[in-house]
Design a protein around this nucleic acid. Sequence first.
DNA 1: TCTGGGGTCCTAGGACCC
DNA 2: TCTGGGGTCCTAGGACCC
Length: 436
Amino acid sequence: MYALVDGNNFYVSCERVFRPSLNGRPVVVLSNNDGCAIARSNEAKDLGIKMAAPWFGIKHLEQEAGLVALSANFTLYGDMSDRMMSLAAGLGPTQEIYSIDESFIGLQGVRGDLMKRARTVRERILQWVGIPCCIGIAQTKTLAKLANHIAKTAERKPGSYPSELTQVCNLATLPAQDLEDVLRATEVGAVWGVGPRIDKQLQEEGVRTVLDLARLDPATIRRRWGVTLERTVRELQGQACIELDDAPGPKQQIACTRSFGKPMHELAPLIEAVSEFAGRAAEKLRSQKSLATELLVFMHTSPYRPGPQLSRSVVVPLRRPTDDTLALAQAAADGMRYMYVPGYRFIKAGVILVDLQSADVLQRELDLETPAEDEPKRNRSQLMGAMDAINGRYGKGTVHAASTGKVGPKRVWGMKQERRTPQYTTRLEDVPVARA
DNA sequence: TCTGGGGTCCTAGGACCC
DNA sequence: TCTGGGGTCCTAGGACCC
C-alpha cells in the first residue's frame, strides 16, 4: 500500500506563504529567463493558462485579469520542500522523495485509520509549512498517483468526483462499483506513464478512459507498446510492479544548462558561460562523491526564431576521472572553442557530465604516478573542498574559476529574472520581519 | 546450391516524469 | 523582443566475441 503526498501548485503555494495577498489571485511562476509559466495557481488555470505557456503570450493578462507573474526562486522552493518532506515522512515507515513537491510513502505495517492519519498529516503540512497538499492512497504507486490526481481534481472542480474523495483519496477502500465509476470518469492521459504520444495512440484505438486502459490485456500492450506501458496497466489492475525507492543511488549524469537572456554570437561569452556551467556541475558532482570521465558541451540557436539554425555538441574525454572545477571548466572551454562557428545567434548552451563513477574506486594510472606526482592532486582536492566550504558559507559563486569571467547580474549572457522574490528562508537579510 | 548460433556491450533516439 | 531545466528508463541496431 502506498500514499502519494503532493503539494498543490507548489511553487505558487510557496510564494503565497510569504505574500498572503496573492491568495485568491491568478499567479504564475516563470521558468528561468522568465520564459514560460511552470506553475499556475487555480485562478491562473481558470484563465486558461496552459503549462509551459510562453510569458509573452499571456503577459496581456496582467492588465486584463490581474495576473501576477514571479520569477522562479528555486532556493526558496527547495527549502520549503525539505520542510514539507520531513512532515510527509510521518505518514509511514518509508519515503521516496520523487520530486520537489511529491513523495511516495510506503504504508506497510501502518495500523489504525489510514484516512484519519492522512488527514492529520495534510493538516500539519498546511499549518506548519503553509503548503496545501493532497494525498492519494492505493495498492500500487500508479494507483496512488491516480488517487492523488482525483483528490486534487475533486477539490478544484466540485462535482467532478464524489465529494468524499477531495484532498485525501483512498482508492483501496472504495467499493468495486464506485472504483469503476471513478476510473471511467478519468481520462487516460491522466495516468502516470501515459504521455502525449501514447495518449494519442490509445485514443486512436478507442481507449479513452482509465477504465478502458485497465481492462486491456497486458500481453497485447507489451507487443504494441513495450514493457513500460505493460507495467502501468498491471499497476492499474492492482499488481504492484514499481517498487518504492527510498535510497536512490548517485545520479548517472549531472547537467547544467541555461538559455541566455539574449542571443550570443561571439565566442568569448560562450566560453565564460560553459566554464561556469561546468563549475556548477562539478559542485553537484563533488556533493555526491562522484567523478566524471567525460563531459558533453552543447549549444544551439533558437528554433522559434527565423534565421540560420545550428545545433552542435561535442564530447570531451577527460584525461582521468575528475571532480575538479578547474579541469572541468577547462574541458568545457576547449569543447566550446572546438565546436564554435561564427555567424549564428546562440540562445542556449550547457554542460552535461556523463559516465560518472564513484570517487571511492578511482583507478590509478599504471606506473606513472609516484607519490610526488600525487602531491599536487591532493592539494587540488583540498582546494576544491575549501571552495565548496567558502561558497557554502558566503553564497554561490563567491569563489570560482577565472575563466567564468566576472560574476554578477551584469554579465552579457546572464539570465533574465525581473520578478524574483526574496530568499525568505535561506538568507538572513531576506527573512521577513514581524511587527507588533 | 551452398556460409551458424548465441551472447554481450555500447550508442542513439524516443518516450516519459516533474 | 519573447518559448525551462534536469532527470530516468527502454529499445533497436551495430560491433564484437567465441
